[in-house]
Design a protein around this nucleic acid. Structure first.
Lengths: 185, 185
DNA sequence: TCGTTGTTGAAACAGTCGTACCATATATTT
DNA sequence: AAATATATGGTACGACTGTTTCAACAACGA
């Protein structure tokens, strides 16, 4: 008996909080400004999530979930040449809409190097969608259990993503990816 | 007349503050713990640097200076094959002693994407030693003004550095670099 | 010794942080 | 209407933040 619980409220808050973190980053995240932007109160954030730490964990899990879902819809599984797949993935991952995800990804990586205990899913949670992505290129490897070529492919994508976000020079980045595709052929 | 100024004090503090930031990161940097670790006081830090913001700027400049100096001593200018140079640079940049620099580099990059105004030297200051490094591979480019191959080389180095710091799997990273060297040949 | 300049400590200020406490409002069943 | 469970608002606590203020001390030339 009593007033029925509203399970949607926490989820709605989580969705908007994730938007906020994607836009503003984790570093300076503070409950009061966050609550104000979400039309709620710090009181309710703690009521729903228990603590700031748990809220951040939930937000990161949600961000990761979103990335995985959107990725799933854009994977050209095994069709086409390696270069076609490479260009397809690059076009998707380097699109402007992905920028907030990429930025958060970089931020969590850097912070995780100093505070590994704060991110219990040990880089797996951080890099899993990169791994998923890398699996698409498993056939470029020299052997069945070879992880070297996928590793290199992912390094190129991450490195160029780093360059692109820092310099904004999309033309140069695109051409560098094409150059890599040529080398792989 | 009057007591003579001590110009070495600020420099000594700056050197130790840089060590501290390399070890503890920028994100949670606070004057009181910093001062305690440096056997000084917040009062003196502000006396010497004016404000926390200026202190951080000075520390980043010092870190960049150190990186440039150490890099200068480890550049095999144009001798040897591309692969030899590639392996040499990778061995140097991925060495454990470089890890704090690399971490700070990643952190500043991520924060700079959200607060470009806080880093007035616009990524140039952040990436200049990477550029210096890239210049070593200028001869691999397809033309005199070609920036594409150096861009790719740098992306591989950064991407593998990212992977290595996140996973700690040096063997896989080393082999991925060798694979890239093969492709370049 | 005295004035002058550089150096330093202690304390306080105004603000923000995450969080806990207490009361109250709201919606439901009995 | 009473009981009950969920949902909120308001407020305050203690700790921390960068920075300022005021005073004192230290080392020098005159």
């Amino acid at each position: 008996m009593g007033r029925p619980a509203d399970p949607t409220r926490r989820e709605r808050t989580l969705a908007r909080a994730t938007d906020y973190v994607l836009a503003h980053g984790l570093a300076g995240l503070s409950l009061r400004p966050l609550a104000a932007a979400l039309d709620t109160s710090p009181r309710m954030l703690l009521y729903d999530f228990g603590s700031k730490q748990e809220l951040v964990a939930a937000v990161l899990a949600e961000a990761r979930r979103r990335g995985a879902v959107r990725l799933a819809g854009h994977l050209p599984p095994e069709t086409g040449s390696v270069q076609e797949r490479l260009r397809g993935i690059w076009a998707w991952i380097s699109a402007d809409e992905r920028a907030p995800f990429v930025r958060l990804f970089f931020e969590v990586h850097a912070d995780g190097l100093l505070h590994p205990e704060a991110y219990p899913d040990q880089g797996r949670a951080i890099t899993d969608w990169f791994d998923t992505l890398g699996a698409t290129f498993r056939d470029v490897s020299t052997g069945p259990d070879d992880t070297v070529t996928p590793t290199l492919v992912m390094a190129v994508l991450r490195g160029l993503l780093f360059d692109l976000t820092a310099t904004g020079d999309r033309h140069r980045a695109d051409r560098a990816l094409d150059r890599f595709a040529e080398l792989l052929r």
